[in-house]
Design a protein around this nucleic acid. Structure first.
Length: 507
RNA sequence: GGUGGGUUCGUAUAACGGCUAGUACUCAAGAUUUUCAUUCUUGCAAUAGGAGUUCGAUUCUCCUACCCACUACCA
């Protein structure tokens, strides 16, 4: 009875992994690790028509980037291999036949056209056709056809599917770890296709149950969109005689778009300027979708943000490392309602993580960006710059915009700021300060030259703000930027005087 | 249409029958600073509506409204 916790993430390789999918994977991972269990990656590629090349690799790379590493599965292997459903066809086949033999399923020979006709007819009558206990008697299947005819069709054609024979008059009692008790009458459910004619593979429903059973999955943690098929899954476990080891289920709330209603889609991201995928994705048709990684998010920030979308620890802590998440996570604290994604909060998380990073790592990330700008600079210098600007940035990519003037002189001056600060006596005062700095003999340190500069300005009875801003205009080209003393210490006395020369000539 | 799920400040959420309904993001104001940013302080802002149970409902029950999902030989 005391089974080892084993959970799985089972995406379809039909395109890039959506951030909602990443969250599902994350919750599975956290749940497993919290309980010392296994996290398995299974690829559900039973739909050959929607298969997208590269999607599987994308999924694996995304999980890796996030640090959500499976214990077994596609790309890793394990005792239950293969973990790709398309490679498990024969396994499913035997269980599908077992279901027919035990009377829990049947062969159906209806053509696509006849099904379409039945639907059209129902629609004309203002109703919806469902293939169910109420209608199966009027369709072409092994229940209505003679045994000989059924055998003949099976023998001579490939034109058949296997459908689940939904029991009549059953109230299915279900328990969900997040939603509690749910019940539904089997009479409202349809005879779902279990085995597809189209590609001679099982549908999700069958493959899913068989694999979860065979792989000894103890909890199924998946998206809310699966809740409506939970009764089918319960009944399938029962029909296969596996109810004693049936996993427990948890259906996660959906991730919704930031404004309006409905689930988060790629379109929302494009429209509002945020990624919905962990990694950049180029579709086979060449369409590009941005990714969190390429947008400059740290994986820790992305994961932290995602974890708190639909789950909370019950405390006021918001910043969690992956290990801390493992420690704090529980399904009881997952909320029932859908969570609207907030791009602003995502940025806030990244800002917090950027501050937590050590200067060395940030300098190493900044160095290539500087190179791309044609700047040659020592790591040591960049280290000093980064220490001063990291509080002002959300992404490493912001560093250049914030600190470019620490690497080269301004080529133009913000007209508004120039008009405001480069007037009256200010040019003359700035020139005088250039001399003061040039002749400065003390150490080139903020705490030495800064106060000295201020004392000088005060002794001349100049207005501090106006003079400092005029100086800043000379150094940065605008009215904003770091403290003057900080800038001087970084760029040095020579560059300082040269920039003052330059502004005097330009303006 | 049918079935199921959901509903606390704009957003994420806390309060698992009991204080003036808390916190974070956003926004606004003020303070700090030589500017900008940071930081700090303060502020704006919510229990969808209606019945019922109870001494007392955000919390339990029912009804209504709204939102979402599912309703494929897709997952």
């Amino acid at each position: 009875m005391n089974r080892k916790t084993r959970v799985r993430f089972a995406p379809s390789p039909t395109g890039p992994l959506h951030m909602g999918g990443v969250r599902t994977a994350l919750y599975n991972y956290l749940y497993a690790k919290r309980r010392g269990g296994d996290f398995i990656l299974r690829i559900e590629d039973t739909d050959s028509h929607r298969f997208v090349p590269g999607a599987e690799q994308y999924i694996i790379e995304s999980l890796n980037w996030c640090g959500i590493v499976p214990d077994e599965g596609v790309g890793i292997g394990g005792p239950h291999a293969p973990y790709r459903q398309s490679e498990r066809r024969e396994i499913y086949r035997q269980y599908a036949e077992q279901l027919v033999a035990s009377g829990n399923a049947y062969y159906a020979f209806d053509s696509a056209e006849s099904l379409e006709a039945a639907r059209a007819q129902a629609e004309a009558a203002g109703q919806t056709f469902i293939y169910s206990s109420a209608t199966r008697g009027a369709m072409r299947n092994s229940l209505t056809l003679s045994e000989e005819e059924t055998q003949r069709l099976l023998r001579e054609t490939q034109d058949w599917t296997i459908r689940f024979k939904m029991p009549v008059g059953r109230t299915v009692q279900m328990d969900d770890l997040i939603r509690g008790h749910v019940e539904i009458s089997s009479d409202t459910l349809d005879d779902k296709v279990l085995w597809k004619r189209a590609d001679s593979l099982p549908t999700y429903h069958l493959a899913n149950i068989v694999d979860d059973h065979l792989m000894e999955i103890t909890e199924v943690i998946r998206g809310e969109e699966w809740l409506p098929s939970l009764p089918l899954h319960y009944l399938l476990y029962e029909a296969l005689g596996w109810q004693d080891t049936m996993p427990r289920f948890a259906h996660l709330p959906l991730l919704l778009k930031p404004v309006g209603n409905g689930k988060l889609s790629k379109r929302d991201g494009d429209k509002m300027g945020f990624p919905v995928f962990p990694l950049r994705w180029v579709s086979p048709t060449g369409e590009v979708s941005r990714g969190y990684r390429e947008d400059g998010y740290f994986p820790e920030a992305f994961v932290n943000m995602l974890a708190l979308l639909g789950w909370n620890p019950g405390t006021e802590q918001e910043l969690f490392s992956l290990d801390e998440l493992v420690e704090a996570f529980s399904l009881e604290k997952v909320s029932k309602s859908g969570a609207k994604f907030n791009p602003e909060k995502a940025k806030w998380f990244n800002r917090e993580y950027l501050r937590l990073k050590d200067d060395g790592a940030l300098a190493d990330a900044f160095l290539p960006l500087l190179e791309a700008q044609g700047i040659q600079s020592s790591r040591d210098y960049v280290l000093r710059v980064v220490a001063l600007i990291k509080e002002r940035a959300t992404f490493v990519a912001d560093f250049w915009d914030i600190a470019w003037y620490l690497f080269k002189a301004p080529e133009a001056y913000e007209p508004k700021d120039a008009a405001k600060f480069w007037k009256d006596e200010n040019p003359a005062r700035v020139l005088e300060l250039a001399t003061f700095v040039r002749d400065w003999q003390g150490p080139l340190e903020k705490d030495a030259i800064g106060p000295a500069l201020e004392d000088y300005i005060r002794s001349r009875e100049w207005p501090m703000g106006k003079v400092m801003n005029a100086l800043r205009l000379a150094l940065t080209g605008s009215g904003s930027g770091l403290g003057i003393a900080d800038i001087i210490c970084l760029i040095g006395k020579e560059e300082f005087t040269s920039r003052i020369d330059k502004i005097c000539k330009s303006l």
